[in-house]
Amino acid sequence: MHGSRLIPGSLAAVAGLASLANADVIRGQAMLTGQVTTGGTCSFANYTLPRDIYGVGIGGGNWAGGGKCGSCLDVFGPGGSARVMIVDSCTSCANNRLNLFSDAFRRIAGTDQGGIIDVEFDVVSCDIDEPIVVRNKVGTSRYHFSLQVLNANLPITALHVSTDGGQNWEETVRREYNFFERATGQSGGFSADRVMVRVSCSNGRRVILPEVSAAELVVTRAPTNC
């Protein structure tokens, strides 16, 4: 059982996970689903979940159009508890419904059998020891910006880009497939081979990556995490 509990104020910062904005525990239900990260709506292709963190899909009303991708929950059920990361959505699921990967379901339900179980869950830090990384989408270039944030300990609230060394910043938009891109009406790219990226976390912390390549599929490590 993970010792990390709800971070003060974090539930309000990820509004949409429940209507209980001031509660420490969210009550819901969970069921078993296939154990697949690649192909989920968070676009976590080729991403390996950190040690002791399992995968989960969440109801469409909680998922916030991709805004909760990568967030972690501590889930408590009749058989035990597990820490899970949101990697997928379930558009047909009710709010506060969790689709647990089989390994997580087994820990929480105490059985390999399927079915629906009652659970409680907290929004928590993922407690990942590694720094944030950002990954460019296929087709990314100086003419098309599309960037994904991985390994963040807390939900990402914004991503800004600077082409002048941090003097000016432009906010990007998180798409439903969990990549940050320029807003509609802007040109697709920043006309630069390298940019500075600022990642904002739900605890108010900002992580700056001073040099991010515009080439496709490049992965860049940040200096730290949220």
Rank of each mutant, 00 (worst) to 15 (best):
H2N: 06
S10C: 05
A13P: 00
G16Y: 00
L17R: 03
L20M: 08
V25I: 09
R27F: 06
Q29N: 03
A30L: 00
L32F: 02
G34W: 03
T37Y: 04
G40D: 01
A45C: 14
I53A: 11
I53M: 08
Y54V: 07
G59Y: 00
C72N: 15
D74W: 11
F76R: 02
G77A: 13
G80I: 09
G80L: 10
A82F: 12
R83T: 12
R83W: 06
M85L: 10
I86Y: 05
I86P: 09
C93N: 02
C93T: 03
R97I: 08
N99T: 10
F105L: 08
R107M: 09
G114W: 04
G115Y: 10
G115E: 12
I116E: 13
I117A: 14
I117T: 05
V119D: 07
V119M: 11
V124Q: 05
S125C: 09
V133W: 08
V134A: 04
N136Y: 06
Y143T: 09
P155W: 00
H160D: 15
T163D: 12
G166S: 10
N168P: 12
V173I: 07
R175F: 08
E176N: 08
F179C: 13
E181Y: 06
M196N: 07
S200N: 08
C201G: 05
N203K: 01
L209H: 01
E216C: 11
V218T: 02
T224A: 10
N225F: 07
N225A: 14
C226Y: 00
